[in-house]
């Protein structure tokens, strides 16, 4: 079983990528792993290229930056352009509501934003994406993410986020019938 995952969440400032990376990292901690989460951002609070990196490993994580990503989430064209040419071993997930669809065995477009709007909260797109990526890559268990979301948020916000997570999970089940990548 693969123990080390390097995940890049890339898009624009304000898309909640850093929070998304923190949730993912906390889920890995819940599974007893070491994690490092880093970010790269510009001077703009909203907009501008933004990137959150998560490394999870059973072993000590020495170098803190990602060198060979296993999983990439791209939420803007700029982010997609940076990673689209990565090798076939890199699983790239992108928001097909915001980005043009593109062919490729390792490129997985899902309408995260459209589904988030259907849920009534556009800000949940990244959580839906987490649900999709968790199921398809197996990097963390869905239950771990649920437990992080319920301790990080409370009341209706927790419910909404968990609902968003399962929206992603069910979407995969519907399309792939649950076959992992």
């Amino acid at each position: 079983m693969k123990e080390r995952y390097e995940i890049i969440l890339a898009g624009a400032g304000g898309q909640g990528l850093i929070l998304c990376g923190m949730i993912l990292a906390e889920a890995a901690i819940a599974e007893g792993k070491n994690v490092v989460q880093t970010q790269s951002y510009g001077i703009a609070t909203r907009g501008g290229f933004s990137k959150s990196e998560v490394i999870m490993d059973r072993e000590e994580i020495i170098f803190q930056q990602i060198q060979r990503p296993d999983v990439v989430l791209a939420l803007t064209e700029q982010a997609m352009a940076m990673f689209a040419s990565a090798g076939p071993e890199v699983q790239i997930f992108y928001d097909s509501t915001l980005l043009g669809t593109r062919p490729g065995q390792n490129l997985h477009g899902y309408p995260f934003s459209a589904l988030a709007s259907e849920l009534g909260h556009g800000g949940t797109a990244n959580i839906i994406a987490l649900g999709v990526m968790a199921v398809l890559t197996g990097m963390v268990k869905v239950e771990s993410l649920v437990s992080v979301l319920s301790s990080r948020f409370s009341g209706k916000t927790a419910d909404l986020n968990i609902k968003a997570l399962y929206t992603g999970v069910k979407l995969v089940e519907k399309i792939t019938k649950g076959d992992p990548l």
């Binding site: 990292a25 994690v35 490092v36 970010q39 803190q64």
Partner: peptide, 9 residues
């Protein structure tokens, strides 16, 4: 900035 903003377990 790296260690300041980095998160770890």
């Amino acid at each position: 900035e790296i260690v300041g903003h980095m998160r770890e377990n």
